[in-house]
């Protein structure tokens, strides 16, 4: 199949990696497009951003897609690497991380919380395919309760970070994140506006973006790999904040916007170091 590059892909993405090797019908490309569209609308260029990715579907499929400098961390650790990198990079360089739900909310949650705590300038896009799909489809920490997956054949019955009134964004708000939002992949232009705000925050921003996985999650939970089913299912279980219904899993929109309300990690550290160097005290 011939692939025709659009203006946006040839400007920002590597032709070698686009289209990606994701499964047919995967919704990750919609999330990816939302982020790249936001970058474009902000007028940012390739040298302005260092792109980091993680392990799993979201990490592997987005690694090296960005035309500029990029890296992929070991599972869950990219938030710690990004903090070290933040210290070394000039403040005007943006760090965008496209990661998965297992990476951010499972193995990497400690590092994520500490990145929020320190308000390190990075925009974390958590592409949530509702579990560990690249390993075949096991439940994760945001998988809706009751879902059937390969490791929850009777339905996922554990308490998790999205069950019974719990929300992972509340944890991150408590930890000090300065921008938090949630969108599903079908939110389109609305999500682009939110991602733009996240990137513009000089501090820790996280946008949680559930997207459809027809191959594993869809086939186990809905009994079909039909893409339309899982797309509908995700859309029907999401609603804008304040308009939630009983069966809403994902309340979408900006959860918390305290952009630029407290000092950014690396700038604060460098200013303090400079003061110590000059005066011997803080």
């Amino acid at each position: 199949m011939e692939y025709r590059a659009t203006e946006i892909t040839s400007r920002y993405l590597r032709s070698r990696k686009i289209p990606s090797t994701a499964c047919s019908g995967c919704g990750l490309g919609m999330n990816h497009k939302i982020v790249i569209q936001a970058v474009k609308e902000l007028g940012l260029e390739v040298p302005d951003i260092v792109w980091g990715t993680s392990i799993g579907c979201a990490g592997r499929q987005t690694f090296a897609t960005w035309k500029g400098d990029g890296f992929a961390g070991t599972h869950g650790r990219v938030y710690a690497i990004a903090r070290g990198l933040r210290i070394a990079l000039p403040p005007e360089k943006k760090i965008i991380l496209t990661v998965g739900d297992g990476d951010a909310f499972g193995i990497g949650l400690t590092h994520l919380i500490h990145s929020a705590r320190s308000n390190a300038d990075m925009t974390v896009i958590v592409n949530d395919n509702l579990g560990y799909q690249s390993t075949g489809g096991q439940y994760g920490w945001t998988t809706p309760q009751g879902s059937k997956t390969d490791s929850s054949p009777y339905g996922m019955f554990e308490h998790n970070l999205m069950s019974e009134g719990m929300d992972v964004l509340k944890i991150l708000k408590g930890a000090g994140a300065t921008f938090l939002a949630r969108h599903v992949a079908m939110d389109g232009a609305w999500a682009v506006e939110t991602v733009k705000k996240g990137i513009l925050n000089t501090g820790f921003s996280l946008i949680h973006m559930p997207y459809p996985c027809p191959t594993n999650f869809g086939s186990r939970e809905l009994g079909s790999r039909n893409q339309v089913n899982i797309f509908r299912w995700i859309r029907d279980h999401s609603a804008p904040l304040g308009e939630e219904k009983e069966d809403t899993f994902w309340a979408t929109g900006i959860w918390h916007d305290a952009s630029n309300s407290r000092p950014e990690f690396s700038q604060f550290v460098h200013e303090t170091v400079e003061k110590i160097r000059r005066t011997g005290t803080i």
């Binding site: 890296f71 710690a80 690497i81 903090r83 070290g84 990198l85 933040r86 210290i87 070394a88 590092h111």
Partner: peptide, 10 residues
Amino acid sequence: HMCIGASLGG
């Protein structure tokens, strides 16, 4: 990992 990040930044 933070050392890795700093080293990656120069």
